[in-house]
Design a protein around this nucleic acid. Sequence first.
DNA 1: GAATCTTGACCGTGGGT
DNA 2: ACCCACGGTCAAGATTC
Length: 236
Amino acid sequence: MESVEGNGGGRLVVTELSHIKELVKQLEGHLGGSPALCKHLTSEIFSVTERSIGMIRSGHFHGHHRKRAAAAAGDLGSATPSPLSDVSDLPFKASKKRKTMEKKKHQIRVSSTGGVENLPVDDGHSWRKYGQKEILGAKHPRGYYRCTHRNSQGCMATKQVQRTDEDATLFDVIYHGDHTCVQKAVAAVAGKPEPEMDAQSRLHDLISTGPTVKTELPPQQGRSWAGRPARAASMT
DNA sequence: GAATCTTGACCGTGGGT
DNA sequence: ACCCACGGTCAAGATTC
């Protein structure tokens, strides 16, 4: 995998960010007559993205991150004060940090509306928790969820939910894979069919419903993980 | 009784040496 | 190339509905 330190890596990042720019543009178009706040939000994202591109192009990016820090940032996003980015700041603990496998994923940050104990958002799908694990450097454990319809419909979508360190009411939610299940009940409530609501659509939903959103584009290269037969983990 | 949650164990991946 | 730490998933038992 390429790091952002290399020329090719930097170019890659520029490409990715440009892609974000494109998507935000599209998003803005989709929002059409939405509240001004949404527009403000998108324009802000747009300007931030452009700034990032400018920084990278001007070379500010180089030498600022260590290789692993960059990898960690790539994993959860620079705006996320994640355990990874946390730890990567520590000079003595940054090693051995496993780069999570780059699958198709989308990360968002949401706030819990129902109190600290509640899950952040109902994203329109039913999830079943299958694991929880303490993450190095994180104050709160990470919860692992898979689609309830995994068995019945073979839906392989999963998500990881982790409380942020600085604010227990904020959650980082990382979606892996797309839903292939049909959510009849939700579709009825939402008033729209949802045969295969991809992350982009979810993003639109989440943005329009309010919570602070951070997106991460799916990496162009990623292992197929669906067929992995192995088991693994050490929950603490 | 079925569905879901909790939690210990297992295993693959990837960085360090 | 090997070792080791970490993260993700499995599965059995417990709990809830």
